[in-house]
Amino acid sequence: MNEILSLAAGNLLSPIILSFALGLAAALARSELTIPEAVAKGMSIYLLFAIGFKGGASVAAHGLDASLLLSLGAGVILSFALPLLAFALLRVMTRLSVLDAAAVAGHYGSISIVTFVATTSVLADRGIAAEGYMVAVAAAMEAPAILSALWLVSRGGTGPKIEGDLWREILLNGSIVLLVGAFAIGWATGEHGLAEIAPFIVSPFKGVLCLFLLDMGLVAGRGLRGARKALTGGLLGFGLLMPVLGGLAGLVMALGLGLSTGGAVLMMALAASASYIAVPAAMRVALPEARPSIYLTLSLGVTFPFNLTLGIPLYVALGQLATGG
């Protein structure tokens, strides 16, 4: 326990967390500080490209075995299954309608790539190595949860029709294309390729991540300010409990796969995080009657800050404990 608290305290004083806290505090205090939309999108493209490329280069350096395919399969299973757990919890803990509960549940099966990136950064700081292909697992976990959410709604017989365009948008979501594409380039060009562009994607990485988290804090703070009334005690409890349960499910999968300590921590972070880019967009198209003020506030305003501040140190400590790393 002391180790977890010490990790959490160290984590809270990192530039990444303090940048997020600055954004959150500024938004809650109604400061006029904003990051332009184009700059935020540019930073997100940079982070996705960098993390994908570095993951691919790591796979090229360390070789590939069946564990990649098994980890991908485990990620897909988690993404399909976690919304079912989230849905059951929401129906017990809150008064959300089936539609709203399914939409929220979909977010918790998918992943937050920034939580993943922040976790890789914490692991790197602590010198804990992880499987490079976990980036590909992150990409594989983006979409299946959307199908689970739509299935949860369609069980009543009046579910949404999944049109061809939605399939394409889900599977060729910009984040997935960039992450997988950069991973493939990193894999193909290996360490030599990484060395060529390292001054661009390695050295400035953490600074860009800080600025991006400043922006995330601003967006989360504005969301919290606007949706305070929608956030009941039950929803807040769900937003804090679900990531821990998801993280534990990720840990079980990681132990079954025999992942390294770093790989187990990343699998936990993926299973614990909730989407705020791919799934909300799909929900707006497929389930427009579901309330974005609930699913975006929970995902970005409750679960994301929890994971960033307390969740990641908890997952690192549990991962180390469980794998003996």
């Binding site: 939309e37 601003l218 880019i277 791919a278 909300p280 974005p292 975006l296």
Partner: peptide, 9 residues
């Protein structure tokens, strides 16, 4: 739209 990376919202 300030700071948003997703089309949602």
């Amino acid at each position: 739209r300030a700071g948003q990376v997703s089309p949602t919202g």
